[in-house]
Design a protein around this nucleic acid. Sequence first.
DNA 1: CATCTAATTGACCAAATAGTCAATTATTTT
DNA 2: AAAATAATTGACTATTTGGTCAATTAGATG
Lengths: 216, 216
Amino acid sequence: MNFNTMTTTTAVKKQGKIRAKSEQIIIKAAQEEFILQGYKGASVQSIADRAQLPKANVLYYFKNKENIYHAVLEQTLNMWDQGIGDILLEDGPKKAIEKIIAAKVKMSFENPNASKIYAMEIIQGAQHLKEFARTYLRQWVREKAKIFQIWIDNGEMANVNPVNLIFLIWSSTQHYADFETQILTIMNRAEYEEEDIEQVTQFLTDMILRGCKLKP
Amino acid sequence: MNFNTMTTTTAVKKQGKIRAKSEQIIIKAAQEEFILQGYKGASVQSIADRAQLPKANVLYYFKNKENIYHAVLEQTLNMWDQGIGDILLEDGPKKAIEKIIAAKVKMSFENPNASKIYAMEIIQGAQHLKEFARTYLRQWVREKAKIFQIWIDNGEMANVNPVNLIFLIWSSTQHYADFETQILTIMNRAEYEEEDIEQVTQFLTDMILRGCKLKP
DNA sequence: CATCTAATTGACCAAATAGTCAATTATTTT
DNA sequence: AAAATAATTGACTATTTGGTCAATTAGATG
């Protein structure tokens, strides 16, 4: 995917040897700071500290804070794009739902920070992602809804609203990333474990398949 | 509910005639600013502007920014506490699930801002709500999970993990508040309408009841 | 080796902002 | 109506912070 609204600055950059590595370190540090402190609350100094670089060096790689944030978002969206399972007509509803739930749960557990950045951006009004949502995302949802509708018309699954179904899969999977803190606190645990992925995938798959009147 | 960790400052305040009204105006303005800009990003000045009051006046009612934020959170939690439907043993699983989904969808559509503030707080690590989650929330989930377990043991519903079920109801309903922007953009709409509440409630109730092997 | 580009970094500055204060006005109480 | 309390507000300050700059070092390239 090419988020060309964001790559205007990064595209023209000079390419040294250290750049790629430094940028990656900075982006990761920035992602964590932006989650903990919000956009305004994350100071360039704090990002630099976390990246163990002088502030001036951070600003040498990214001209300003806004650019750092863009880079973080860009990477988040690319991760989202790769990680989201696809819905294919030839899979049929059962396999498609299983695939997409498994992919999204995996993403939520293995990369909660990407999900958190995305969620905060949307909650705050999607200032930087309006265009992405209006074009790419809307298109994606419509395409996939259309496929569900075909299955419904063929009597392969119950007559549930496809868009609501997509939102349901979306929200229920992402919840384990965004509300990580709350879930861990409620379950009195320090962190997720490997088997949680399997357990949650199983639960959501069963529930939603039954919801669509598909035998698990 | 008494969030006595937060009321330490407000409890001792002097009570004039104008105070109650001014505080309410400020809290509402602050809620909106905090959502749009985050805690650090929302300046006292911007809150004052939105409340149409001089900054010094805002700081007369709330000693500092932190206190404003506390007041916003306090009100959010109280709203949450009132709005969340209760799960009662005597209702049985079907009625209980119907009740709680209806209540939470209603809350999400009618007061998305409360949900957004709460979500942001949790995503950012629940700095101000750790205690609330550790005590009240954990207790609430455990109590309700226990009731679901009784129904399961009685064969009144399918053997689904009660805690996961609670998370599912939680996430799928709240999604319509937190991701309002995204959902509206995808559906190419300017705002929610009255009938959306009914439609979403119906969809989620049907899906989740079927997921629990309960006939809608 | 000489030249050019990339990378590093301390010092500095202008703008934004949380919070204080004192002076004044409005309202309530006695 | 006098005294006391509540509310209002402009002006001021100390601190934080995004961003610039110039000086220096490291590395590549011819």
